[in-house]
Design a protein around this nucleic acid. Sequence first.
DNA 1: ATCAACCTACCGACCGTTCGGTAGTCTTAG
DNA 2: CTAAGACTACCGAACGGTCGGTAGGTTGAT
Lengths: 192, 192
Amino acid sequence: MTRDEILEAAAQIFRQKGYHAASMQDIADAVKLQKASLYHHVNSKQEILLALLDQALDLLIEGMEKVLALDLPPEEKLRQAMLTYLQIMLEERDLSSVLLLEYRSLEPEYRQRHIPRRDHYESLWRSLLIEGAEQGVFVISDVALVSRFLLGVMNWTITWYREDGPLTPAELAQECANLFVLGLKRRKDEDG
Amino acid sequence: MTRDEILEAAAQIFRQKGYHAASMQDIADAVKLQKASLYHHVNSKQEILLALLDQALDLLIEGMEKVLALDLPPEEKLRQAMLTYLQIMLEERDLSSVLLLEYRSLEPEYRQRHIPRRDHYESLWRSLLIEGAEQGVFVISDVALVSRFLLGVMNWTITWYREDGPLTPAELAQECANLFVLGLKRRKDEDG
DNA sequence: ATCAACCTACCGACCGTTCGGTAGTCTTAG
DNA sequence: CTAAGACTACCGAACGGTCGGTAGGTTGAT
């Protein structure tokens, strides 16, 4: 049994039940250990949660930085960023769900460590939008607001997306991007 | 002390801590009763949660039905619906947060009672979009998907909106509607 | 012999809920 | 007008159970 296996099981249970409804006993059962044995690998339940949030954010930051480094026109870069985000979200659902929904269960001391990284990630999205605006491709009055709209649509997908449904993550990303890109792009009838 | 006062306090605490992290003791403290006295007014903690979800959904359904009854072109009706939704969400934040985030804590028996009403509400949004599509004003390939996108953006606002921030709910609704309406409307360069 | 991995046994705290009881108020028969 | 009875609102104490976490011992590979 490794720490990572415990974290993985914990993510699944946290997602299903929520942090507070999930007990260390549940996690122990899932990895077929005694509850006390978990404490050989982790220091506390809160530490598990923090580790999961860190993992999730690492994935997202890594994905976003790769996209930002690409040499693409803003519109394509935005599409690529949305695709990457949704793919991570929907392929690592346990982790993502914990990041988005169980974040509130972090106790203050741990939260302080987490918030700056979260802010950093959001700033990556803003920089993408700013790039598009500076090149005159996007028309955006409030970059912070639009980035929240963007992340909002995508974040909410984890509450309703079904793997056995009609859409693949890639198709979903495309539909989503279509809707937004049209709303952001300078229209033909607009002046320069 | 009335049942409604207890529900109101419970909503606030559920929003702050989450259902499972909130204790009956917390609620009792908030209304300055002994924990046991709560059971004179409510039957269980789960019943409180269900009552709050019902209250929230009642508000939203009522608002939506009023908007649907208006005699407006589809675009204006959509804008009005979004405004109404966001106003309710942001003016009744405790209730709305519980609806969106604590819904998962409903136990199966209670959930079965709640789900049909929730589905009904979402169908109201779909019918609005269908109306616009049939009149040729909106171009929508997948109504269910678009309605989820719409609700997703708006639902996520409760996680970041600050009352002391720069935007009123009405301004927020307008920005949000602008983005979406552009993505949905038939463009000039499209054929008929 | 060492040490990681895991165990049994246990701790105090708190959970939602129930119980028996007590003021105070309202109703109604004499 | 009064007194008995019923009803509402609330309380203190306790229930069985679960919580996260700890102490200390056993196992087995190196």
